[in-house]
Simulated assay, not measured.
Amino acid sequence: MNEDKVEGVAIANLIAVDENNIVGWVYRWNTGALAIRWDVHGPQRVSKLYPDLCDADKAEIDFAFLTQMPCPDD
């Protein structure tokens, strides 16, 4: 990464509740911050991360909320 620019690298996939589809990605920025980028369908409930992240990283992206988001079918 170039330290003069703010850049991010995908570090984990967000896996849908069907456990077959990737619905987004977790990015780590060169500033140390984490952010989520959703696929074209936007935010939706997730079942897990792959690869799994440490508890501190999960807390930063509020993974508990991501697993409880309303599904469009709810």
Rank of each mutant, 00 (worst) to 15 (best):
G32C: 02
Y50G: 01
P51Q: 08
K5T: 13
G8P: 12
P51S: 04
M69C: 06
E60S: 13
F65I: 04
C54R: 10
W29I: 11
D62T: 04
P72F: 12
F65E: 05
W29A: 02
V6F: 11
A12Q: 06
S47Y: 00
D73I: 09
D18T: 15
M69K: 13
D74W: 08
P51H: 07
V23H: 00
V9S: 11
D57N: 03
D57S: 01
N30T: 06
S47K: 12
W29E: 12
L66T: 12
R37C: 13
F65R: 15
I36H: 07
M1A: 06
I36W: 07
I11A: 06
I15R: 12
R37F: 14
V17P: 08
N21E: 09
V40R: 15
I15D: 02
D52M: 05
F63K: 03
G42Q: 00
L53T: 01
D62H: 10
S47L: 01
V26R: 02
V46Y: 00
A35Y: 10
D39G: 01
H41F: 15
V46N: 00
A59G: 01
R45K: 02
I11C: 12
P43W: 10
L53M: 06
A10D: 05
R28T: 05
A35G: 15
E7D: 12
R28E: 15
N13E: 14
K5C: 09
S47Q: 04
D39M: 03
V17S: 07
G42W: 04
V6W: 02
A33Y: 04
D4Y: 15
D73K: 11
R37A: 14
M69A: 13
Y50T: 05
D4W: 10
D62I: 01
Q44D: 00
P70C: 10
W38C: 15
E3Y: 11
G8N: 09
D39Q: 00
L49A: 02
W38H: 07
R45Q: 04
F63Q: 00
P72N: 05
